[in-house]
Amino acid sequence: MTLTMFELVLFTILTAATPLVIAAIGELVTERSGVLNLGVEGMMIAGAACAFAIAIVTGSTALGILAGMGAGMLLSSVFGVLVIFLAANQVATGLALTILGTGLAGLVGSGFIGLKREAALHLHIPFLSDVPLLGKLLFSHDLFVYLGWALVGGVAWFLNTSRSGLVLRAIGENHHSAHALGLPVRRVRFLAVLFGGACAGLAGAYLSLSYTPFWAPGMTAGRGWIALALVVFASWRPLYAFAGALLFGGATVLQLHAQAAALGIPGQLLTAMPYLATIVALVVLSMRRRRGSVAPASLGLSFMPER
């Protein structure tokens, strides 16, 4: 393999990993606060549709991104009200969110099928971007990729060293104790859910504005679900989530290359690869953790204080 080919593969792995990284980091924060939002897929695809629609209508990528994040947050706020303030079942509400988000995305996107946009601008720093290998890998992506990296670093810092991060972790760990100490359990959880929604929407915006700059129904292709699996895979730690996303990005890219190389493997088997990989990853991780779980102890449980 030539250097350029190698470079290209690594480059595409980074781009393919980006939507997974962004969505997984958002969900990771949500889950660390003790809320399981299974609606990532729905928020992501709604984000993709809204981002593309607004970007086409206004001609502005920035507004498109904001619209994508806004759509994710709006959906997640509905979810948040239901599960946090009305103590609705988190699993079922998350599923409802996915169904709703997919439907809304279809409605919004129906007028934009077949349109195309320029992909979001890629960074180019003279000299730095031209350094062989590293230059391309580090300094010539579009802003989403850098945003993803910044999110990983920022969230890792937030959770591990900031006071607010400590409060969030404490609430996910034991909401009764947190409440007894006077920590605002439901407010923090709602904010964490909104953050997760914004991230999922942003991941969707990346798909429709940069990764494949057009809108197609079902374009997220289960990436929201894979992001959920990544959070488990990463044992709820941001840097591991980044590493996991790179692995999955790698699987996706390998699949594309194998398809292009026509190795005689049925296309469907390659298409199924990410899903199979997700199952395998979950199994391997769960086997390693037979004794006890590192999941936030209050994950998925409702909290209703009495006053």
Binding site: R163, L166, V167, R169, A170, E173, N174, H176, S177, A178, A180, L181, G182, L183, A297
Partner: peptide
């Protein structure tokens, strides 16, 4: 508000967080 007013509480069922350190548990308040 109660803490600010000078009232402290030691709970029967401890309001502690198993996976946090002693210092983190204390820092929360």
């Amino acid at each position: 508000a109660a803490r600010a007013a000078g009232i402290g509480m030691v709970f029967q069922h401890f309001s502690l967080f198993e996976n946090l350190t002693v210092a983190e548990n204390i820092a929360l308040v």
